[in-house]
Design a protein around this nucleic acid. Structure first.
Length: 452
DNA sequence: GCATGATCATGC
DNA sequence: GCATGATCATGC
């Protein structure tokens, strides 16, 4: 039954034939029974098993062994399966990030991007997207579309440069003995995501005695979403690129923003020839968008990289008055979550921020542009964030809604109302109604962390 | 109708 | 002056 493929095209054609089908459609009765009993023996679906089955029953390849890590390379093409889910307005979105092989902290510090084991293994990938549904079994997932991911050729040039930069950033950090401080939000498209059977696992790193969480390279979920929306579904979303040049995002932003440093909002508005209502509450944000991309549309690079733009305004004495708010949490949800699966953890681990910084003038009549900073939550403060998150959970569990973490409880985050007004309430686990609240990062902490 | 980002208002 | 509470404006 071993099938031979000589070219990439033959493999891709085979994959295309499989679209709109599930494994059940292509397996015979006997195989189905065998696989089903195998699934029963091993309990829940093993990770990587779906990939192995696809390799065997769609592409007719014998499995080399039963390693959990599916490694099924044919004619230089690495096959990967990845789940999507249905979405209310966007048709499909990625269910997860796309995870590659583990980062070997000890050996990677001797590699360059060009000769990296990552590129060696992953330079040409055939991505098979299947539609995940909770109630379905592994043999019932319908495959929807496939996509060629080619890190050297078909990922557009501009992205390849950023991905190389991301890889180098991660390796630099490991070289410095800071593998334990890695975070997915450190980088733009290629991330170092945690990967272990449970969150307590640690491994050795070079140049430091501090054990680090095991991590793997991954393409951000946001990046996959961009591919799905724009390259596969061809939805016409109104994205604007910062620039089409082959530069890293850092460089592109510098190109756009540097010339405005020190200028007042009026000067910037005039220079860009904009008509903006300054009374608008969002007006600084609108201004920032125009400064970066020349429009008020979503910025392509930021969508792909899970970057959030936030405007902050310093007082004339350089004080930062306002803390940073996030979407309100769900009281009922939070008491059933653990830290590693919480919204706050995901935000702090995965999100990257671009702070656009203005400063008020003496009279408070105008503002001037001070600069910008990319930032993500520092890994060394994650434990403190967790402590406050757990405290908040405890208080909610015990119904002490007036004792949620305050500013004085931490130097980093606190909990405060965040709704339309005090009557904007949601249900609690106790069945009562409480004002919507969210986590806020202290203004002082942001200011210090940004070095302002 | 609500989420989101941002800022205003009050009281100690 | 800071901590805490409250709410506005926009866009989807």
């Amino acid at each position: 039954m071993l099938k031979v493929y000589n070219t990439k095209k033959e493999i891709f054609d085979e994959a295309l034939l499989f679209m709109e089908k599930c494994l059940l459609d292509v397996m015979d009765q006997e195989d189905v029974l065998e696989v089903k009993s195998e699934i029963e023996r091993n309990g829940r679906n093993r990770k990587g098993y779906l990939g192995q089955l696809v390799q065997k029953y769609v592409f007719g390849q014998e499995l080399v062994d039963n390693r959990a890590e599916a490694d099924f390379k044919i004619a230089g093409v690495e096959l990967k399966t990845t789940p999507i889910k249905e979405h209310r307005t966007k048709e499909y979105i990625a269910k997860e990030r796309l995870v590659f092989s583990m980062i070997d902290y000890m050996t990677i510090i001797a590699e360059n991007w060009e000769n990296s084991s990552f590129l060696e293994k992953n330079k040409l990938i055939l991505l098979l997207f299947y539609l995940y549904k909770k109630e379905l079994g592994i043999l019932d997932y319908k495959f929807k579309f496939c996509y060629e991911l080619d890190f050297l050729n078909n990922i557009s040039n501009k992205d390849a440069i950023q991905i190389k930069k991301d890889w180098e950033y991660i390796v630099e950090k490991i070289k410095k003995g800071e593998a334990h401080l890695l975070s997915e939000g450190d980088t733009f498209y290629l991330g170092a995501c945690t990967k272990a059977s449970d969150s307590s696992v640690r491994r050795q790193q070079p140049n430091s005695d501090i054990p680090a969480k095991p991590r793997a390279f991954s393409l951000k979920q946001s990046y996959l979403n961009y591919i799905i929306q724009n390259e596969i579904l061809s939805t016409h979303e109104d994205y604007k690129s910062i620039s089409e040049e082959s530069k890293t995002i850092d460089e592109k932003i510098k190109d756009k923003l540097e010339r405005f440093i020190g200028k007042t909002d009026n000067e910037i508005i005039e220079e860009l020839g904009l008509v903006i209502n300054k009374k608008q509450k969002q007006y600084k944000r609108t201004l920032a968008n125009f400064m970066i991309s020349g429009s008020n549309s979503k910025i392509e690079e930021f969508e792909k990289a899970n970057v959030k733009l936030r405007v902050i305004t310093l007082e004339n004495n350089d004080n930062l008055k306002e803390s940073i708010s996030f979407p309100h949490f769900d009281y009922r949800e939070i008491v059933n979550q653990d830290w590693e699966h919480s919204d706050l953890y995901r935000l702090f681990e995965e999100k990257r921020f671009l702070f656009v910084i203005f400063k008020k003038d003496k009279e408070g009549k105008s503002i001037s542009f001070q600069g910008w900073k990319f930032w993500n939550f520092p890994a060394f403060d994650m434990e403190e964030a967790q402590r406050i998150w757990e405290l908040n959970k405890e208080m909610i569990q015990s119904g002490k809604y007036d004792s949620l973490p305050k500013v004085s409880d931490s130097k980093i985050v606190h909990v405060r109302p965040h709704g339309r007004n005090r009557d904007d309430k949601i249900e609690t686990p106790h069945g009562t109604m409480e004002t919507k609240k969210c986590f806020w990062i202290h203004a002082n902490y942001i200011k210090e962390s940004l070095g302002l």
